[in-house]
Design a protein around this nucleic acid. Structure first.
Length: 522
RNA sequence: GGCGAGUUGGCGGAGUGGUUACGCAGCGGAUUGCAAAUCCGUGUACAGGAGUUCGAUUCUCCUACUCGCCUCCA
């Protein structure tokens, strides 16, 4: 994973051109990616996890292809926002208290679904100075104007390419009659860069009075600072990077951000860097993931199908004693291509857990010989083709059945029985999709079944089960198959699955476990 | 109203102008006292209509439906 594999061709669907394009980084020694992160005012819902998982896989793929030290991944935290202010007012807690707590929750939950931390995780409030500087620059270039009442607005008409990314024009949007007409705007589509704060609202001193930034400016300011200005000052930019000032490779986020957020980011950034006329600069490739549905419906609090990541993690902890169902959530997410709508159901997550268990068994059965020269890995080729995670998982399944065949049947295959290439691919695919054996351990059936026993069975029930098992053992010994089967059926009926193996009898609890049904059988 | 994405077998979900996706479930078989696990085998699906074509699930157009964005939202 650390060696560069730059011969792998990555293709990505670029929202800017609406086409799948070959990805060519500005500087293969430092691939730069920015993804819009969360507003930290509450627990992340499962929809929030989709872009995190999608771009985590992209991050891993880029690191695989260009080398782990040659990718810079930035994902921000929006910690200044009116929703946060409202929550502070509601609860009486300080803003910093809320955002610190929520930020940590987010990191914990995203780690649970196997996402690596980005290289930089800037907080908007740490970049107020940079935002003010950028706004001043925009005013100086006549792309923005103060209204004299503490607001600064971006002038959409000053940027001829406004609407290019999202494919819409301002006239249509205004005709939609959903644009608020305000007195202080030169054009109804103009948006706020800076707004005044009263005594109760958090604010920073600025040339336009005490105030706070609008939503969009933060990403422009942070991307510029972290991906251009700081490396420039540190002398870290290559000639090819220097030849593309203020520009980085990939900008990602959910497609709901395409308009207005990303459109506004582009407008601000291109205008600030002197690219108002040609619309060049800023991000070369724009990636947008589709939205998620729950049980076929849009997730919303009013429909009662609103889940946080934490809700799911806790549900499986409670019901199945699974410490971390996160990897199964991750696999479920990756089974749907990022540009398709995804429907999440409880069943689909449980199916994913079974698949991970099956994969893990194969990994444990083989040792990986990393020294062999690998031909192109079909799993990675699938990922390189516009992050086709669904196809990549199919390739994993194909490798899985190929590897299962000789090993599990115990058959010695004559001739060329060398499967080291396939096991290498399989192992590499497992890693690049973001899974580890340790990470999935708690959701493996044998593991949670054992844990479930310890948490859901009291001593009496435990003794009863053991007595019944002993009863059945005797019946089998006496070849009293009728009695043995009666007991097996009774176990099955009460949610206890009994297996006779060469190592003896083992039993597991199933979802429908009901100890009361075991009573009266002795 | 404007813009965009999509509609594949029981379910999830690839892909292709003429050939098996794959996985899960199901079914048949091997194995097992019976089961479980495992292995082998098995499924002629591409929303509807018109067109292009020797031939379309795959290209074009239309219709229906679903979803998203246009307002905070990942």
């Amino acid at each position: 994973m650390t060696n560069a594999n730059t011969e792998t061709v990555i293709r990505l669907t670029n929202t800017k051109t609406r086409k799948k394009e070959v990805f060519t980084p500005i500087d293969a020694q430092n691939v730069r990616m920015y993804v819009c992160g969360p507003t930290v005012y509450d627990r992340a819902h499962i929809g929030n996890a989709r872009p995190v998982i999608v771009f985590d896989v992209l991050n891993r793929l880029l690191r695989h292809v260009y080398g782990a030290d040659h990718v810079t991944y930035v994902r921000n935290f929006t910690d200044v926002d009116d929703k946060i202010n409202a929550k502070a007012a509601e609860t009486g807690r300080s803003i910093r208290d809320i955002t610190d707590e929520t930020t940590q929750w987010y990191l914990d939950d995203m780690q649970a679904v196997g996402a690596m931390d980005p290289d930089h995780m800037p907080r908007a409030t740490e970049y107020i100075d940079q935002m003010i500087t950028m706004i001043e620059g925009l005013i100086a270039k006549k792309h923005a104007y103060p209204d004299g009442a503490g607001h600064v607005l971006f002038s959409v008409n000053s940027y001829p390419h406004y609407g290019d990314l999202s494919g819409r024009n301002t006239d249509d949007m205004i005709a939609g009659a959903r644009v608020e007409i305000a007195d202080n705007k030169l054009d109804p589509m103009d948006f706020v860069l800076w707004k005044p704060s009263d005594a109760e609202t958090p604010g920073w001193d600025s040339p336009w009075g005490k105030g706070r930034p609008g939503w969009h400016i933060e990403c422009s300011a942070m991307a510029e600072d972290i991906l251009w200005k700081k490396p420039l000052e540190a002398g870290e930019l290559s000639d090819s990077a220097l030849a593309h000032p203020h520009t980085f490779d990939i900008h990602g986020g959910g497609n709901d951000l395409m308009f207005p957020h990303h459109e506004n980011e582009i407008a601000q950034s291109c205008c600030a860097s002197g690219h108002a006329e040609d619309g060049a600069g800023f991000a070369n490739y724009w990636l947008h993931n589709e939205m998620l549905q729950v049980e076929g419906k849009k997730m919303s609090k009013s429909l009662g199908n609103f889940f946080t990541v934490r809700d799911l993690l806790e549900k499986y902890q409670r019901q199945f004693a699974i410490d971390n169902i996160g990897p199964a959530i991750r696999l479920r997410f990756l089974q749907t291509h990022y540009r398709s709508p995804m429907d999440v159901t409880g069943q689909s997550i449980e199916d994913a857990a079974v698949k991970l268990d099956n994969w893990a068994r194969i990994l444990e059965s083989f040792s990986v010989n990393k020294s062999i020269v690998s031909e192109p890995n079909p799993v990675i080729l699938a990922l390189a083709d516009d992050l086709n995670t669904s196809k990549a998982i199919s390739e994993m399944d194909k490798l899985h059945s190929f590897l299962s065949e000789p090993y599990l049947s115990g058959t010695v295959v004559s001739g060329n029985n060398d499967r080291s290439q396939e096991i290498l691919w399989f192992n590499e695919g497992f890693e690049i999709l973001g899974f580890t054996l340790d990470g999935i351990n708690s959701l493996r059936h044998s593991v949670w079944s054992e844990k479930l026993k310890s948490v859901s069975i009291n001593t009496d029930v435990s003794k009863l089960i053991e007595a019944l098992l002993e009863e059945r053992r005797k019946a089998r010994q006496d070849k009293d198959w009728a009695r043995a089967d009666e007991l097996r059926d009774a176990f099955a009926n009460s949610g206890v699955a009994v297996s006779d193996t060469s190592d003896g009898v083992s039993w597991e609890l199933m979802q429908n476990f009901d100890p009361s049904k075991l009573e009266g059988l002795l």
